[in-house]
Amino acid sequence: MLQSQPSRLGSILLLLAAVVGFAVALYAWLTPLTGVTGTIGALGVAVACVLLALLTLLLRRASRGGMRVFLIVITLVVLFGIGFAGALLHQYAIPVAMVVGLIGLIALSSNSVRPDHRVRA
């Protein structure tokens, strides 16, 4: 099944947000003098970004219905959680990436809102 352009763009933006969040959190966790070197918070954000990437892949595969709505809600909660944790870590690139991910989630979920009206003759 071919995916529409907003769906493809949405999943690319969500995956980009997950990769950027993971890279910034891992950098903050490993690099001295970031203020959060070796803390559980920076490592937790990196792990949550991996979870966000997995949720994105699951959301691309989900068909219309309850499971898709559940995955959208869970992805939204994860996006806000990662953004809030990134702000608490003073790594402000992470909340910016999560806003991009939110735009991607909106584009990805916009396909599930449209009803499928087909003309039958």
Rank of each mutant, 00 (worst) to 15 (best):
V119M: 09
S110A: 10
Q3Y: 13
L9G: 11
G35Y: 06
F70Y: 07
V69C: 12
G21C: 00
S109D: 07
V20R: 06
A62V: 10
I72L: 12
L9K: 15
V73M: 06
G66N: 12
A17R: 00
L57S: 10
I72G: 15
V19S: 10
L30Y: 07
T56I: 11
L2P: 01
G41I: 08
V78T: 10
G41T: 13
A62Q: 05
I72E: 09
S7P: 10
A23C: 10
I40L: 13
A93E: 06
A17W: 00
G21Q: 04
L76S: 02
L71V: 02
I74V: 14
A42R: 01
G38Q: 05
A121I: 13
A25I: 01
Q3L: 09
V100T: 14
L58C: 04
L13F: 11
L33R: 09
L102I: 14
P6I: 14
T56M: 05
S7G: 11
P115Q: 15
L51C: 14
R120Y: 11
I94M: 03
S110F: 13
S112E: 08
A121N: 12
I94N: 01
A93S: 08
L57C: 11
G83P: 07
A93D: 07
L54I: 10
T34W: 00
G38A: 07
A53G: 01
V24A: 06
V77R: 05
L30G: 03
L55R: 02
M1W: 11
A97S: 09
W29G: 14
I74Q: 05
L76Q: 05
L57W: 08
L54Q: 14
L13I: 07
F84T: 07
L16R: 11
A85F: 01
L26S: 06
